[in-house]
Simulated scan of single mutants.
Amino acid sequence: MNSALKLIATATAFTLLAGCASHNPYDPQANQGSSNKTAIYGGLGALAGAAVGAATSSKRDRGKGALIGAAIGGAAAGGYGYYLDRQEAELRRSMQGTGIDIQREGDLLTLVMPGNVTFATGSDEIAGNFYGPLNDLARSLQQYNQSIVEVVGHTDNTGSRSFNMQLSKRRAQSVGYYLESQGVSAQRLNIQGVGPDQPIASNSTAQGRQDNRRVEVQLRPMQGAYE
């Protein structure tokens, strides 16, 4: 069985399992049908998308076409949550071991990139070992292109506020411009620096200041996406 057919079979099995789960009378979530419907419709959409993707791709690229079709079809049928579930899972795999933390709250997905990974102290030049994760992120943003990408730079409170505001903005710009250079549409990018104004830890300790020095990339649904 080729890869495209395997993917279609997997989507079919997922749909059938989701359907069985939604009809389990002993399931305490049975009365909360929204998540079950998302799973069912997402699975059906993935199946249809995989079939279309495989059918419209060349023989060599049929497996890849089925995969992309499954993601698009599943998202259209299951909503933005289904779409983001897939992107989150793939990003967690690609960012594993990089020091980048991925946080999810509803339809907001945030990648927290600590300062010791991204930039040298006082610099807005991207660190050499940070290009790999940024390349992975750029590829994900191109494949999953129904989100607004907010790049926000943060600093600790060491030094003047004016300097930190400028540094945080330059760092956010470095990340945003690099993503753009790797094919992410500039129309999707919002770039800002907030300096020391949004700390996540106390600036009274070295560890707290290190935690506060970071760049966050936040993915939000485009207005009207999958409504």
Rank of each mutant, 00 (worst) to 15 (best):
G79I: 06
A70H: 04
Y144D: 06
A76C: 00
G132W: 07
G128K: 12
D107W: 00
G81F: 02
L137D: 04
R104L: 08
A138W: 07
I126A: 07
S140V: 03
I100Q: 03
M113K: 09
L111A: 12
Q96R: 14
A77M: 08
L67E: 14
D107I: 03
I102M: 02
E90M: 12
T110H: 08
S140C: 03
Q142G: 09
R92K: 14
Y131W: 08
A76L: 06
G128Y: 10
M95D: 01
S94I: 01
A89N: 04
D85A: 13
A71L: 11
G132E: 11
R86S: 12
G73K: 05
Q103M: 04
A120V: 11
E125Y: 04
R139M: 03
N135I: 11
A71F: 12
Y144S: 05
Y131G: 03
Y131T: 00
A77R: 06
R92C: 01
G65W: 01
D136F: 07
Q143M: 13
M95S: 01
A76H: 06
E125W: 08
G79K: 05
T110D: 08
N129M: 12
N129S: 10
V117A: 11
G81I: 01
A70L: 09
A75F: 02
D107T: 09
D85G: 08
T98N: 03
G122D: 12
G106F: 03
G122E: 13
L141E: 07
Q103N: 14
Q142S: 07
Y131M: 05
N129K: 09
E88H: 06
V117I: 15
E125H: 14
G115H: 12
D124W: 14
T110A: 12
G122A: 12
G106C: 01
I72L: 11
N135T: 08
I68E: 07
D107V: 04
G81R: 13
Y80S: 09
I102P: 00
G74C: 09
R86K: 13
L91T: 04
A77V: 00
E105S: 15
Q143I: 06
L108Y: 08
E125S: 15
D136W: 04
G97R: 02
Y80L: 00
L67M: 11
